[in-house]
Amino acid sequence: MPIKPCDHVPAEIAQPHIQHGQRGCEDCLKTGDTWVHLRLCVHCGHVGCCDSSKNRHATRHSHAEGHPVIQSLEPGEDWMWCNAHEKQVG
């Protein structure tokens, strides 16, 4: 069965924020912390760490800002996840 996008997936996907040429979790870079995998907020471009990371910044951002859909930024992965529906949407 194909994965179908939900109504939360925006028509245009935001580009990731790149700070000072560094690609990483925006919040972990500010505090000098580490992450496991990176996730992109498709609504605004915020880059956060995944739920396997101790800080879970991508999910925290999603809930705090009301931006439900995140996308994997890992090489070879192009899936999206809707936190509102708790399901894969792309």
Rank of each mutant, 00 (worst) to 15 (best):
M1I: 10
P2F: 07
P2D: 13
K4S: 11
K4L: 14
P5E: 01
C6H: 05
C6P: 03
D7K: 14
H8C: 09
H8R: 09
V9I: 13
I13L: 14
I13E: 02
I13A: 04
I13P: 06
A14F: 02
A14G: 04
P16S: 10
P16G: 01
P16I: 03
H17C: 08
I18N: 11
Q19Y: 10
Q19K: 11
Q19I: 12
G21V: 09
G21L: 09
Q22N: 10
G24V: 10
E26V: 05
D27S: 08
L29P: 05
L29E: 10
T31K: 10
T31C: 03
D33E: 13
T34H: 13
W35I: 01
V36H: 13
H37T: 14
H37Q: 13
H37A: 08
L38M: 14
L38V: 05
R39S: 07
L40H: 04
V42T: 13
H43Y: 06
H43T: 12
C44S: 02
C44V: 04
C44R: 02
C44F: 01
C44W: 01
G45V: 01
G45N: 00
C49G: 06
C49V: 06
C50D: 15
D51L: 13
D51F: 07
S53D: 09
K54I: 10
K54C: 07
K54E: 13
N55C: 06
N55T: 09
N55P: 01
N55S: 03
R56L: 07
H57G: 00
A58E: 00
T59A: 12
R60A: 15
R60F: 05
H61K: 08
H61E: 09
S62H: 03
S62I: 03
H63F: 14
H63S: 08
E65L: 12
E65A: 14
G66N: 07
V69F: 00
I70F: 00
I70P: 00
S72D: 11
S72P: 08
S72Y: 05
S72A: 13
S72F: 08
L73K: 04
L73C: 06
E74V: 11
E74T: 14
E74A: 12
P75F: 04
G76Y: 06
E77L: 13
E77Q: 14
D78K: 11
W79R: 11
W79V: 05
W79Y: 12
W79Q: 05
W79A: 04
M80E: 05
W81R: 03
W81P: 00
C82M: 05
C82S: 01
N83G: 05
N83W: 15
N83H: 15
N83E: 11
H85F: 10
E86Y: 09
E86A: 13
E86Q: 15
E86L: 09
K87N: 03
K87R: 15
K87A: 10
K87V: 05
Q88F: 12
Q88T: 15
Q88M: 13
V89C: 15
V89D: 01
G90A: 12
